[in-house]
Design a protein around this nucleic acid. Sequence first.
RNA 1: GCACCCGUAGCUCAGUAGGAUAGAGCGUCCGCCUCCUAAGCGGAAGGUCGCGCGUUCGAAUCGCGCCGGGUGUGCCA
Length: 564
Amino acid sequence: MDYKQIIAQAIAKAADMAADEIEAMIEVPADTSMGDYAFPCFRLAKTFRKAPPLIAADISEKLEIPKGISRAEVVGAYINFFLDNQSFIEDVLGDVLEKGEEYGSADIGKGRNVCIDYSSINIAKPFHIGHLSTTVIGSSLYKIYNFLGFHSIGINHLGDWGTQFGKLITAYKLWGNKEDIEKNSINAMLELYVRFHDEAEKDDSLNDTARMWFKKIEDGDEEALSIFNWFKELTLKEVKIIYDMLDVHFDSYDGESFYNDKMQPVIDELNEKHMLELSEGAYVVRLGDELPPCIILKSDGATLYSTRDLAAAFYRKKTYDFYKCLYVVAYQQDLHFKQWFKVVELMGYTWAKDLEHVSFGMVSLEGGTLSTRKGNVVLLQEVLEKAVEKTRAIIEEKSPGLEGKDDVAKTVGVGAVVFDALRTARIKDSTFSFERVLNFDGETGPYVQYTYARCQSLKKRCDFDFLTAEKDWQAIDNKEAFAVAKLLEGFGEVVIKACEKNEPYFITKHITELAKAMNRFYFEHRVIDDDKAATAARLTVAHCAGVVIKTGLSLIGVGAPERM
RNA sequence: GCACCCGUAGCUCAGUAGGAUAGAGCGUCCGCCUCCUAAGCGGAAGGUCGCGCGUUCGAAUCGCGCCGGGUGUGCCA
């Protein structure tokens, strides 16, 4: 089934060259009218001392057309290869039928653990659209790695440490009340936090009180800890609602507080290795001319996030013996990760190369940057609710008789938001817009889901078992079915590429293309008619497209409704 | 100042281990439901691939230099 390889062998034989060398030169033409595979002869000009078009003609003449290829055609310096459409379609569909939802999966990660640090929310802070990227990218990677045989470990590295919690307790003791917090949860905490900052500007002694409360947390004071843990519990409870909506899961919630007692051994080791240097009152590790030094201990002796990240990395290596450890964190922290990765390397650990910062771009609002404290935020829950609401309205308009409207509205609405967040390369900045997220036309989540529902609907309309029925493959010997088959065939490679580059959008793009091809097929060819064998063949196309669309959607964390 | 990232159609983006006339969606305009879901399909218009020089048979893609935007740049995370 590896056509590239088959073609390479044939060319190699004709040109008397090494097959692997040839294979690396074979490409896929941008335009399918120029074939399915192409071999450019430009680079052979030097070795053969002939003009490229002549070389192409010579090779073509000696070429034995391999099985599965219908013809080879010389165009200028290119030899273009055309697949035998019918046998190709049959092969691919057969493969999808056989493997089902496993189609595209692999076992390249067998026995390997991959830690994925994503979402990593802050306690007592609302979940806004700025947290969407890390959450859905991380969650998608979690699924992609699992699909390829790895064992993913999802880690929500909670932001549950720091003086802000001293501030929060101070504010709570002064102005808060239990009922309000229980009732309004994060909103109430945020209000207290904002009020603290307002009041502290007038009365600096509040900051001292806050430091005192944080010290109490550190010292394990019972009252301080109980308030702190209560805040933590309420925050997680509220955020869990969003994670459930998004179908996002974690295997660990070990965050900053968890590593509080695990930093000293790292500091000791740095000391033993004579890597710590006292500089301007702080202890730092020098990283050479390329990078600024990494601060390990502040001049007051306190630790920093680098220290905590180091401790966490050692803990994860020891606990999970990871093959890779990914950090799905915005690009603002590029330097920070480069620095402490370098520290691990300088400590002599070769696994430093397995640490990877999966960075992504910023989300801003039309009115400027996001700021929790200034109230310039769009809450994710609000976005999801609006999307579901809008979907609900569309359903009432287009399919008023639909069963399970609420479930479908949820799957489609939430899917639209997630799909939108995973539609481009991670690194791109984006400006959040309700207009775009709530547009369900064109290359969107609902479009792909709609195509899936269409495929399912076709199957329901068929009154015999098309899977076991005899099929007339000639009925799908057309360019639309061929286009679907090619995209089905390319799916596995795309998943691997998405994994290698940690880019879920490769999958988003591919299933969008597949949906387009499927819709074209649907439009051009009546699927169900009186000819049973032909109907069975055409339904197989729809069925296989549906299988792969569903798998693809699930890998980016989007559901596939059976009808919509 | 220095480092990193980005710059492709009105907008949002693909395409960047060099390859054949630079692609898609949105928006705009024009068509297609007595027929399997029109959240669909087809078509039109729309581009000095930020600019210049270089490497190459060939550059949106590689190198150098600019310009524009973003991020970061020692005790926040």
